[in-house]
Computed example of a mutant assay.
Amino acid sequence: MEQKVLVAYGSANGSTEEMAEAVARVLRRTEITAEVLPARSVTDLDRYGAVVVGGALYAGRWHKDARRFVRRHRGALAHRPVWFFSSGPLDPTASQRDIPPVPGVKRAMAGLDARGHATFGGCLTEGAQGRVARMILRNGKGGDFRDFAAVEHWAAGLAKELGAMAHG
């Protein structure tokens, strides 16, 4: 049976969405069907055998759409392999060391027995929406710290795990 993977994301300004798309591209290269959707638009998980949830980090919390997605679909997620990723630090730290999940994500992972998590650098550039985002930019703290090679490497590990599950 073909394994279909949902890559759901919570993103305020689109950079976490781009990372979710990168994860899906890697999965598709290994012939895994992957669908990318905004977390807030997902109504059920019946069509998916596995789920990846990505959320932008704001002030130490995951994007509200990612948090709500996990809460709303907790029952269905408990019966599927689940991975999480966070898009956050507006500096190079995510490329320099492993950053653990923020407390809310850590709790969700434990409750769902999630298979893994990665934190990648974030992106906040001119034109970003939101009062806090504009304040950060005004203070000269923005920039694009995403490392797509790291995202793709992480996604390749997921593809390998999913492949092993399908054949094991």
Rank of each mutant, 00 (worst) to 15 (best):
K64A: 14
G104Y: 07
D98C: 04
A156D: 15
L90P: 01
G14S: 12
R138P: 00
P81W: 11
F69N: 06
H117R: 00
S87Y: 01
N139K: 11
A155Q: 14
Q129G: 09
A78F: 04
Y9N: 06
D65Y: 12
A149L: 15
R97P: 06
H153E: 15
D147K: 03
R72D: 14
G55L: 13
K64N: 12
D91S: 01
S95R: 06
T119F: 02
D113Y: 02
R134I: 13
A110P: 01
G140D: 12
G127K: 03
T93F: 00
G10K: 09
R40E: 12
Q96F: 05
F120K: 00
A133D: 14
P100A: 07
V51Y: 14
R47F: 06
I32G: 03
A118L: 05
S86D: 03
V132C: 02
A66N: 14
L90S: 00
G130I: 14
L77F: 07
G163I: 13
S86G: 04
V7M: 10
A34N: 05
F145V: 12
R115I: 03
W154E: 13
E161G: 07
A94M: 04
E35Y: 08
S41D: 09
Q3I: 11
G104H: 04
G14W: 13
E17N: 10
R131W: 15
A155M: 13
A34H: 00
E126P: 00
S87M: 10
T93Q: 05
L45T: 02
L112P: 00
R61D: 13
A110V: 03
A110C: 00
R40S: 04
A118D: 14
R138W: 13
L158K: 02
L90D: 04
R29V: 01
L124K: 04
G104R: 03
W154N: 10
V82T: 05
V52T: 06
V105L: 05
A110I: 01
D147Y: 09
V7C: 09
T16A: 15
Q3E: 15
Q3H: 06
A108H: 01
V26F: 09
P100Y: 07
R80T: 04
W62C: 07
M165T: 09
G111W: 10
V51C: 07
P100T: 04
L27D: 08
V42G: 04
R138C: 01
R28I: 08
A155N: 06
S41W: 08
M1E: 08
G49V: 01
A22W: 12
E18T: 07
D44M: 00
P81C: 02
F69W: 10
G143T: 12
P92W: 06
E21T: 10
A12S: 13
G140F: 13
H79T: 04
K4S: 11
F69H: 06
M135G: 03
Y58V: 08
G111I: 06
R67C: 11
W154D: 10
A118C: 08
I136C: 08
A39Y: 05
P89Y: 00
R67K: 10
D91L: 01
N139H: 14
L162G: 08
A155C: 12
V36Q: 05
G116I: 10
T93N: 00
V53T: 09
R68N: 09
L158A: 08
S11I: 12
R80G: 01
F69S: 07
G163T: 11
F148M: 11
D113F: 05
P92L: 05
